[in-house]
C-alpha cells in the first residue's frame, strides 16, 4: 500500500509498504531517515521515539498505515537550519552521549518534555525519560544534559 504523511514538515510518500510494517521501518528503510533507532521492536527501549501529531510514541509500535495523513517529527527534525536544537547541544556539552544508540530517542523525549514543562524537577525528568533505556551512561550525564538544556532555555527567555 501507499502511505503519505508529513515528516519534519515535509510531505513524504512511501510505496509498496507492507500492511503490517511499522512506522519505524518506513522512516528508516523507505524514507532514508535512520536517526530513529531500532533496538527492541517491542516498546521497551524508546530508541525509536518520534512525535506523532505532537505526541511522543514508540514508532516501532505504530502501524505505517496509522501514520497516513499525520505529522511525524524525528530526531532529524529537532534542529533548524543546520543548527542543533538546544537539547542536542546540551547532550554534547554534558557528555551525555557514549555509544549514542539511545540518544535520538532520548532527545525526542527530552525535547518534548522541555516544551511542555520548561522548569522540570529531577522527578519530572526521570518520569519523562522512563521509557528510554541507556546501556552506557548510567543516566547521570543524561540528567545533567536535560537540566542544562532547561537552564539555558529559561535564561534565553
Amino acid at each position: 500500500m501507499r502511505v503519505r504523511f508529513t515528516v519534519n514538515g515535509r510531505p513524504q510518500e512511501a510505496d509498496d509498504v507492507w500492511e503490517g510494517e511499522s512506522l519505524l521501518y518506513v522512516l528508516r528503510e523507505r524514507l532514508g531517515l535512520p536517526g530513529s533507532k531500532n533496538a527492541c521492536e517491542q516498546g521497551e527501549c524508546g530508541s525509536c521515539t518520534v512525535r506523532l501529531d505532537g505526541v511522543p510514541v514508540c514508532s516501532c509500535l505504530v502501524a505505517a498505515g496509522q501514520a497516513e495523513g499525520r505529522e511525524v517529527v524525528t530526531v532529524e527534525g529537532l534542529g533548524e537550519g543546520g543548527e542543533l536544537a538546544p537539547v542536542q547541544q546540551a547532550f554534547i556539552d554534558a557528555g551525555a552521549v557514549q555509544c549514542g544508540f539511545c540518544t535520538p530517542g532520548l532527545l525526542v523525549a527530552a525535547d518534548d518534555m522541555l516544551q511542555r514543562n520548561p522548569n522540570p524537577t529531577d522527578e519530572d525528568i526521570r518520569e519523562a525519560l522512563s521509557g528510554n533505556l541507556c546501556r552506557c551512561t548510567g543516566y547521570e550525564k543524561i540528567m545533567d544534559a536535560v537540566r542544562l538544556a532547561a537552564a539555558r532555555q529559561s535564561e534565553g527567555v
Binding site: G20, S22, G43, L61, V62, A63, G65
Partner: peptide, 26 residues
C-alpha cells in the same frame, strides 16, 4: 482491531500474528 498498537504491533513485529486484516480504529 488495532488501536494504540502496543499489544498488536509487538505480536506482528515478532511474527506471532499475521492477521488477514488489520482494522485501524485511530
Amino acid at each position: 482491531p488495532i488501536a494504540g498498537g502496543t499489544d498488536v504491533m509487538v505480536e506482528i513485529n515478532f511474527d506471532h500474528r499475521r492477521p488477514e486484516y488489520l482494522l485501524d480504529l485511530t
